[in-house]
Measured scan of single mutants.
Amino acid sequence: MSRVPSPPPPAEMSSGPVAESWCYTQIKVVKFSYMWTINNFSFCREEMGEVIKSSTFSSGANDKLKWCLRVNPKGLDEESKDYLSLYLLLVSCPKSEVRAKFKFSILNAKGEETKAMESQRAYRFVQGKDWGFKKFIRRDFLLDEANGLLPDDKLTLFCEVSVVQDSVNISGQNTMNMVKVPECRLADELGGLWENSRFTDCCLCVAGQEFQAHKAILAARSPVFSAMFEHEMEESKKNRVEINDVEPEVFKEMMCFIYTGKAPNLDKMADDLLAAADKYALERLKVMCEDALCSNLSVENAAEILILADLHSADQLKTQAVDFINYHASDVLETSGWKSMVVSHPHLVAEAYRSLASAQCPFLGPPRKRLKQS
């Protein structure tokens, strides 16, 4: 649940008159999402009104509101027999009622949201009550392989729920002597030191190019640089560091992050930047690179990204790559990247197969709970 924001200063709310007192009302909304995959969808019983329910879910471990999704594969009634019906059901509720908006969509073979439908307002739910769409999607369109909505005969539904909580009022009075504290510009100011090479005390040599930097900042941000300058190493004695395995453009992006906490060109060089972040123990930059690479996972590059993640101990990226390969196994196994990995990294192939087997055979063990970014 997000923290209630402070109200904007009255002088910034309007260029008009300023009242002596004010009130700011925040209506709290808890948002969460749920993904439900139905394997072997074409084998569902086709009687009209037949119901399939998901397991229950909530916004978190401490949330007492429990929900589930309900599907009628062949419609709810005679009117909707040519459609799939989809509903959000409130299973248990400690209150007399709650209000919530919802959005349903289908994830296609690429994991993209399609055929989205959402409620136009927050509906009133009581325990045992459901709301949804009797005519969510035509069955003939859903079952047509050309539309790519049932890869490997799996129907994957994605649901986003927004639950309306209580409202909170914050009130106060205006004073004539309003003090406005300026925003912190530390990142910009440190970035200026790097860009202008002011007050530098060490030189970093990268592929024949020299960059002036500040030992204190490098040591504070990177345990690797800290070790170089702290001990009686040649880098500490000469205040000069030779860097041979990072390209200059990648190095500059890494230094921008060290000084400012930002990497504006990360998406263009996420793979190389991940390697640099791993070498210099820049954990936050490493996770930022993992996130960017996750966003660009595809059938063509899944094997290469899995190898990269394994090489640099990028655990979150590795998990996402394995899950992606499992979901698109029939396509990924035909790529040149996968065939190369079979020869060069057989242990990763074995890991992917083990994960695929456990996903398809849940009876082999208890269900695993899916539970950071600093």
Rank of each mutant, 00 (worst) to 15 (best):
A213N: 14
K369F: 02
K286N: 07
N174P: 04
P9V: 03
C289Y: 01
P362I: 15
A292P: 06
S92H: 14
H231C: 14
F141M: 13
E79V: 03
S54T: 02
D278I: 09
W67Y: 07
M35F: 04
R70M: 15
I307A: 06
Q165A: 02
L317T: 12
V342K: 14
V179A: 06
N196V: 10
R284Y: 06
K129S: 05
V224F: 13
M178G: 05
W67Q: 00
L348M: 09
S15Y: 12
W338G: 04
P5E: 03
C205V: 14
K215S: 09
S85K: 11
L155I: 09
L186R: 02
T56E: 11
S336I: 07
S58C: 11
S33A: 11
P264R: 06
Q120N: 13
L297I: 14
A329C: 12
L204E: 00
V181D: 04
I325Q: 01
D77P: 15
V287R: 04
P10F: 11
V126T: 12
S226C: 13
V126G: 12
D201Y: 01
G128I: 13
P17N: 05
E160H: 13
V246E: 01
H312T: 03
R124Y: 15
C289D: 00
T156Q: 13
A302V: 02
I258E: 03
L65F: 08
F32V: 03
K262T: 02
G208E: 14
L149F: 04
G75K: 07
P362V: 15
V18L: 04
P8W: 08
V51D: 07
D82P: 04
P366L: 13
F141N: 02
D315M: 14
N147S: 07
V224L: 14
G60W: 04
E183Q: 06
F229Q: 11
I106R: 14
G60A: 02
E46T: 04
P362G: 15
L297F: 10
L282V: 12
A277G: 05
K237P: 11
L107E: 09
S344M: 08
Q127P: 04
T114A: 12
D267F: 08
T114I: 04
L348R: 04
M48I: 06
S295Y: 15
P5H: 01
P7G: 12
S33I: 14
N72R: 07
R138Q: 15
A309I: 00
M341E: 00
K31W: 08
C44E: 04
M35C: 08
K101W: 15
E118K: 08
V349L: 04
L157K: 00
K53V: 04
D153T: 08
E97V: 14
A302D: 01
E79A: 10
K339L: 10
R221S: 06
